[in-house]
Design a binder for these strands. Structure first.
Lengths: 338, 338
DNA sequence: ATGAAAGCGCTAACAT
DNA sequence: ATGTTAGCGCTTTCAT
C-alpha cells in the first residue's frame, strides 16, 4: 500500500486524482461532497483515497480559503473546574460546526495573555473566546479592531462593543448573604482574592448590599491571589467575641483555600462558623457538611459564548451582553438541616 | 494606519516588502532572524511590520515548510484535575519550543477518539500525546505507521513500539493497601470503575497482592463508570459484622463518588470505615478528615511526555517507557493521627 | 547583502 | 459532468 508520490510518504489530492484517473478539481469535488460528480467517479475517487490513506491538508485548504476553521480560546487557569467545564462546552459547539478550538493559557498574566493571543492570530483563528486575566487590559479592549470576532467569557471587557457572556454575580452573592443573614448571623466575613476582577468585585458588591441593608458591619478579607489568603489574618477575623459567625467565599478557589485554613484551625462548620460559597463543584455536596453554594450554569455559559462567537461571524457587530442566572443551592454548611 | 494591500485588510509579507522597498526574500529573512541582512534594512523592515500590524500567516509557513509547529493531545476528560494538570505541563513544554498544542477530548469513547485524531492528522500535527480512552484500541496500536511521533500518556498502548509515560500504579496501590493492613484492618474493599483501563487494573493488582499476601479476603466493587458505582452495592459491602473496615479507591473520580455515597449513608471516616485513595487532589488535604492518598507526580508526568515526544521527532524510533514513582501521603482518613 | 522564481496542497474561476 | 489555470502567503533554491 501507500504507493503514492514518494516524496515524503504523504498522499496529496494530486496523487489521488492521478491514481483515480481524474482531474484535480474532480478529486476536490469528491472531497468536499460537491454536486456534479457522477456516483461512479465519486466512488472510484473515494476508494483511492482510502487506499492511499489520504488525509486532506487543512493548512493548504485554510490558506486558499482564508478560513482556518479554528477558533481560539484563552483562559487563566485550565485546572479550575469551572473553567474546565466551560472549555468542554465550547469544544462541543465547535465540534458540531466542524471547527477546532485551540486552547491556550494565560496563567493569569496579561502579558502572557497578549503574547498567546498574538500566536493565535498568526494561526489565523476565525474568532476568539477570552476569559480575561485582567479586564483592564488595553490590549483586549482594542482587539476587536483586528476585525476578529471576539467574545468575553465570564468577565466582560470594558469596551461596550465586545460581546460578553456572564452570570448575575451581584444578585447571586446578595441572595447567598441574605440567606446567611436569615439564619441570624450578624457578623459575616467575605473571603476572596483578585478584587480587580469584575466577577469578584460584583460579588463583593452583592455582599455589601446585603450587609449594608441589614445594618451589619462589613468584614472583608481579600488577598492578591487565593493562595495568599493567610491564616493569621483569617484567625483575627474569627477570634474574640466579635469574631465572624459566618463566611461567604467569593469563588471556588477561595473556598478550597478557606477549607484548608479552617481545618488547620480546627473550626467546625457550621457549628463554629457557617459557610456559603460562590461557585459549585463536585465535592461541595460530598463535603461534610455539604456546602451551600451559588451555582453557575457553566455548561450553558460555555455553549452560549461559543454560539455568540459564531453569530458574530455571520452577523458582525452584534454587540450583545448575555447574562445568565445563578442559583442558590442550599445544603448544610450555612446551618440548614443540621 | 493599515494602508496595505486592501484586498482583505490583512497585511502580507509581500506588502511589508513593498512598503519597505525590499524584496520578498529580504522581508522573509528579517521575519525569521536570518543572517546576511544589514541592520539598517532589518530595522526598516521591522518598522514597516509594526506599522502595518503584520502577523505572519502560520498556515502558509506550515504549508511550505511541511511543519505545522502543532502537536496534538487527546484526553478522555479535561475536567479531571489530574488530566488538567498534565495538559498544563504539556503546554508549558510546547510553549518553550514554540509549538502550539491542539487539545481535544474523546469523552472516553474510542470512536470519538479516532475521529478526533483524524482531524488532528488533517491539521498536520507533528506529534501526538494520547491519554487513551481504551488502550485496547487497534486504531491507536497502528497509529505509529503514519510516521507520526506519538506518546501514550498515563496508560500505555499495548504496542511495544509506542513510547509511554506512566506511574508505578501497582506499587503505589500495594503500599497504600499495606498501610491500611498495618492499621489492623482485615476487610478492605477496593472501589473503582473501568477495569479495562491499564491504570485501574494495575492498581487492582497491587491491591490484590497486598490482600493476598496478608491472607485476607478480596472485596471489590468495580463499576463500568465511576458515576455508576452504586449505593446499594456499597451498602452491602459495608453492612453486617463482616462489612468492610476500610476502603481503597482506585482513582480520584471514584473517591469523589465514594465520599458522596458515604455521606448519604452517614458513615464517618475513619470511625466507621477508614479510607485511602489513589490520586491526590486539592481538597484531599482540606477534607475532614484529610485524605490519605497515593500521589502522582502529575506535572512531571506531563513534562516528560512532552519532552519524550520532541525527542521522538529528533531521534525516531526511540521506544522508551518511562515510569515515574508515586508517593504515599499519609493523612488522617486511614486512621492515622486521630 | 539582496533578489527572482518556483512551489507547498489545496480551492476557485472559468472553461468545455 | 469534468478539466485547466491561477494563486492563497509563505520559504527555498539559486543567482547576483
Amino acid at each position: 500500500m501507500h504507493l503514492h508520490n514518494g516524496r515524503n510518504g504523504k498522499a496529496t489530492l494530486v496523487d489521488v486524482a492521478k491514481y483515480a484517473g481524474v482531474s484535480l478539481k474532480t478529486a476536490s469535488r469528491v472531497l468536499n461532497n460537491e454536486p456534479d460528480v457522477s456516483d461512479v467517479t465519486a466512488e472510484r475517487v473515494r476508494a483511492v483515497m482510502d487506499r492511499l490513506g489520504y488525509h486532506p491538508n487543512l493548512l493548504a485548504r485554510g490558506l486558499k480559503t482564508r478560513a482556518s476553521s479554528i477558533i481560539g480560546m484563552i483562559v487563566p487557569d485550565i485546572s479550575d473546574p469551572f473553567t474546565a467545564a466551560a472549555i468542554h462546552a465550547v469544544m462541543q459547539v465547535a465540534r458540531e460546526r466542524n471547527y477546532t478550538v485551540v486552547l491556550t493559557c494565560s496563567d493569569g498574566s496579561p502579558q502572557t495573555e497578549q503574547a498567546q493571543i498574538e500566536i493565535l492570530l498568526r494561526r489565523q483563528i476565525e474568532g476568539l473566546i477570552v476569559m480575561p486575566a485582567d479586564q483592564r487590559s488595553a490590549y483586549l479592549a482594542n482587539l476587536h479592531t483586528h476585525n476578529l470576532p471576539i467574545v468575553a467569557f465570564d468577565q466582560p471587557i470594558p469596551n461596550k462593543e465586545i460581546p460578553a457572556v456572564a452570570v448575575t454575580n451581584r444578585d447571586g452573592a446578595r441572595l447567598a448573604v441574605e440567606h446567611l443573614l436569615g439564619h441570624g448571623y450578624k457578623r459575616i466575613l467575605a473571603v476572596g482574592a483578585k478584587a480587580h476582577l469584575h466577577t469578584i468585585s460584583r460579588r463583593l458588591l452583592g455582599y455589601r448590599e446585603a450587609i449594608d441593608h441589614a445594618g451589619c458591619a462589613r468584614m472583608e478579607l481579600i488577598a492578591g491571589a487565593e493562595h495568599a489568603i493567610d491564616g493569621p489574618a483569617l484567625h483575627r477575623f474569627l477570634s474574640g467575641k466579635h469574631g465572624a459567625e459566618a463566611i461567604f467565599t467569593l469563588n471556588s478557589v477561595a473556598t478550597v483555600r478557606l477549607l484548608h485554613l479552617l481545618g488547620e484551625e480546627n473550626l467546625q462548620i457550621p457549628k463554629h462558623v457557617a459557610l456559603a460559597c460562590f461557585d459549585d463543584f463536585d465535592l461541595a455536596s460530598a463535603f461534610s457538611p455539604s456546602l451551600t453554594v451559588v451555582k453557575q450554569p457553566v455548561a450553558l455559559l460555555g455553549r452560549r459564548s461559543a454560539e455568540l462567537l459564531f453569530d458574530q461571524k455571520e452577523n458582525p457587530r452584534t454587540s450583545v451582553r448575555i447574562k445568565l442566572p445563578t442559583e442558590l443551592i442550599i445544603r448544610n454548611s450555612c446551618g440548614c438541616g443540621s
